[in-house]
């Protein structure tokens, strides 16, 4: 599934200039604990989170994540968008809650196997 398909499935808004149709997502994880994400997540995973601060972008950069979806209607700040653009991390925001977002992705074939 591409990030463009993720955007449509979750009825999400995109906040970065990335070409979402070129970003492939094979696995995703839902987490509000960045410590776990840093410890257990392999590269090219899509992160769904309710945390909204610049360190979410930094975490995605270090792990080479495929992108970030902010759930529960959380909207990234201008400084986060600027940082994400600079680091070329696609960011989306959906009004759907975490469980529904993860469920929709999983039912559409996105894997939950995120560990190396």
């Amino acid at each position: 599934m591409t990030l463009l398909e993720v955007k449509e499935l979750l009825r999400a808004d995109s906040y970065t200039e990335c070409d979402l149709s070129n970003c492939e997502v094979k696995a995703a994880c839902g987490a509000d604990l960045l410590s776990d994400v840093l410890a257990f997540t392999k590269e090219q995973v899509l992160l769904l989170t309710g945390l909204v601060h610049p360190q979410v972008i930094r975490t995605a950069e270090m792990l080479d994540l495929a992108g970030i979806v902010f759930v529960r209607g959380k909207v990234p700040s201008p400084e986060m968008i600027e940082l994400a653009e600079k680091k070329e991390i696609p960011i989306l925001s959906t009004s759907y809650p975490m469980f529904k977002s993860c469920g929709l992705l999983y039912a559409s074939g996105v894997d939950g196997d995120i560990c190396d």
């Binding site: 987490a31 604990l33 960045l34 410590s35 776990d36 410890a39 945390l51 360190q55």
Partner: peptide, 15 residues
């Protein structure tokens, strides 16, 4: 509250 401080930092560095 920022999602850190779960006691994974040093073990993750070692790993």
């Amino acid at each position: 509250e920022m999602g850190f401080g779960a006691g994974m930092g040093l073990p993750n560095m070692r790993n």
